[in-house]
Amino acid sequence: MSRQRPEPMQVVKQRRDAALNALVEGVPYIRFLGIEFDRRGDELTGLLNFNDTQIGNPFLPAIHGGVTAAFLEVTSIITLSWSFLWPDIESGAIDVEQMARGDLPNLPKTIDFTVDYLRSGLPRDAYARATVSRAGRRYASVRVEAWQDNRSKLFAQAVGHFRMPQPTPKPETPGD
């Protein structure tokens, strides 16, 4: 008995990066804010590229609380989407080329999002990493942390609940 020969590294990387790019590049608001994602295996880190339009208090100056909230929310949604799409991307059930042409799978919808502002966001790049605390069939709970210079000195953290995209529309049953 012999195990299947592993795929060449380039094939694996190309597939994963193409899927992630399609997911991120397909959303105009993510591009508008200048958010990118760094991938190491299945782990994602959100990167908020600083620019002057993100300023919320010109006197300090500090990043706008709304930008911070949006960055955390984007990182949560992309990380959550990535975690549930991963098996289908790996198995080939999702056609990555089709995704790249703009045919994106349905994404989770935010139900609520609570941001804890720990210190003011400095006018420089920020990073964020999200953890899916629970992913159910209908709902998911996600935690996310953002930092700038030091990984251990968070400037904001958040928790959010999301409604998961439903696979196929089925007839509604009472009490569902």
Partner: peptide
């Protein structure tokens, strides 16, 4: 259009709503 969060429907991103909410509260 630059605020769109769901390209399929054209609905704006929740993050943009957060930004107005935060500004308005301030």
């Amino acid at each position: 259009k630059k605020l769109i969060g769901d390209p399929k429907t054209g609905v704006i991103h929740g993050g943009a709503v957060s930004a107005v909410m935060d500004t308005c509260c301030g």
